[in-house]
Design a protein around this nucleic acid. Structure first.
Lengths: 344, 344
DNA sequence: CTGAAAGCGCTTACAG
DNA sequence: CTGAAAGCGCTTACAG
């Protein structure tokens, strides 16, 4: 490296003719506790400061067996939902003296598996994961090792782990019922191909809302789209839903990016929202209130998700709640906007 | 900790009756290089795998003097601009075998200073910073230590450092001229209080665009808003700009969040966009094309910003370009949408 | 009040 | 082909 020679504890100790032990105590603010004389403490602190001493956390972590780092693995930091939650997580972690190591899995289970191990290598003290939900093995491994971790957004319904999620079922039920309450009867759903628990829950919420209104959910009214190509597929999905006999008068979108892309397509096709078709979205973008028309959504409590995840994790790390598993299901909030129009 | 006993190099070596050296070579894929017999290699690898051996990167880093980690310090990971860039940075870093440690400074120079030192403590190999621009001392410190770092978005114009930024001046000039070209004459600017280089550049770009059209920039047409309270202040700013004699027929917003909030306020005040006032924005939100009306913006090349930053940093870390400083100014792209209307 | 020494888990130059 | 040993920079139990 090009760096200048760094000052280490030993250097300071040598220069000042005292032991590393003393220097270490003082610099860790354990001087008083160990009854180091005020004078010695002052000398050490000043000398350290003057020479820009930077302690080596790697050494410290190695010695103490913890790194004061938590790992965050999410599908994609560029997604506004995850970036909001990541912001909260980092803020809370910072306040507790932890730094966060983050990585995106891009929905690739293999990559996610690697990331988990990479984080473990780096001796993170705990892990927060919004999983691809296809890493049973890794999750079992973490459990077996009794390694502290908490899942959020996506969890493994069959496994006994700590997690914090949102009530995806009820959220979707709420928006669907909102449409039904306004008199819409032929309600389509545009969602993602199954595989993720939240998506499954949202599908079920949609179906049950219809059933509550004595409408039989029709498979042909549900379009499941490939995540990677949703940008292209969605146009066909919409054309399919609004043409022919089954012309929908409303569409539920199960994610904010499906909804925004959906609106783009509806505009392109000159389909009037909400006149021809009303739309609602699960989750939102910050601009959904100024979009044309503003989109009715159920909003996820990102602050609460993030802070709850950190809290549970810290509890786990401190061994507070020994074997017991902590789970939390948070409620979504319905935000009514113009995209559903008035009562028909 | 609650963790089970971990397998270390030594454990494997003992169990297998060979030396730690050999195990280390093999597990680092230097087996062939060091002519370890195929058989021994196989035994080691299988045994390691079977017992879920996880190497300790802290120890490795300490020993090798590098951590294979880069630090990212940004104002706020929840801001879509930064989260997009962070995504790119992390992706590129991951491909090069680096993990990224990130922290948000929330525009607080003190916190930023602490974060820089915390990252240094953690022995990151390099740093990417979108600075608060109020840490001259820290920057000088990094330079003095010859520590590899690159700035992006915000840089210190007086200092000789590596950085990658966007042409804020020209970008704002472009959007302002676009308005002028459509016949708008009374163009206001809503921007942030000075302090950041990009903001200063945007102000200048706005002024010079007017001057190019023989219009004298008026201080009273420029409203500078406090970042923390922009949500509240912006309403007064707009009322101020559109009322009385100086009624503006266009407003330039210097950030995407000023623009979106501005649009909210304009709607609330029932001011028609673009009929009464046209608007343009520096930078955008992903939904700006479906907003009502879609907002004309200059777009920042987030991919290029992120990848360039990582490349420069890696060059620096590899000592490739010794003392020489690398800087890059990227162009913005004008995206014309309905918020400026037709030629008057 | 202060210090000598072992230990954390790796890497790697050196020796055979 | 393989190993003994020093070293990375800390922490901390123990001793005085």
């Amino acid at each position: 490296m090009l760096k200048n020679k760094k000052y280490s504890l030993k250097d300071i100790a040598n220069d000042l003719n005292i032991s590393k032990t003393t220097v270490s105590f003082v610099l860790n603010n354990k001087g008083d506790e160990n009854k180091i004389s005020a004078n010695t403490q002052k000398r050490i602190k000043e000398y350290a400061k003057k020479n820009g001493y930077v302690p080596n956390q790697l050494a410290r972590g190695l010695s103490r067996g913890k790194s004061e780092t938590i790992g965050l693995i999410i599908p994609n930091i560029s997604d506004t939902f995850y970036s909001k939650v990541a912001g909260v997580i980092e803020k809370e972690a910072q306040e507790q003296g932890y730094t966060v190591l983050f990585s995106s899995s891009y929905e690739d289970p293999k990559k996610e598996g690697k990331l988990i191990h990479s984080m473990l290598n780096r001796q993170v003290d705990g892990l927060i994961i919004a999983s691809t939900q296809q890493n049973q093995k890794e999750i079992d491994f973490l459990k077996k090792e009794k390694f502290p971790f908490v899942l959020f957004d996506r969890y493994y319904p069959d496994k006994d782990t700590d997690y914090v999620v949102v009530d995806n079922y009820l959220g979707t039920k709420k928006i669907t019922k909102h449409l039904l309450g306004l008199g819409r009867k032929k309600i389509g759903l545009i969602t993602l191909k199954p595989g993720l628990e939240p998506i499954a829950q949202r599908l079920q919420g949609y179906k049950d809302a219809l059933i509550d209104f004595d409408i039989k959910p029709e498979e042909s009214h549900i379009v499941e789209i490939e995540r990677e190509s949703y940008f292209k597929e969605i146009e066909n999905a919409i054309i399919n839903l609004v043409s022919g006999e089954k012309t929908m008068d409303a569409i539920v979108f199960s994610t904010h990016y499906l909804a925004s892309q959906g609106l783009r397509v509806l505009k392109k096709l000159s389909i009037s929202v909400p006149k021809d078709v009303a739309i609602v979205s699960f989750d939102e973008l910050s601009a959904f209130d100024i979009v044309d028309p503003p989109i009715t959504s159920v909003i996820q409590p990102t602050n609460e998700i993030g802070s709850t995840a950190v809290n549970i994790l810290l509890n786990k790390m401190n061994g507070a709640i020994h074997g017991k598993t902590e789970t939390k299901v948070l409620e979504t909030k319905l935000e009514i906007r113009a995209s559903c129009g008035q009562v028909l």
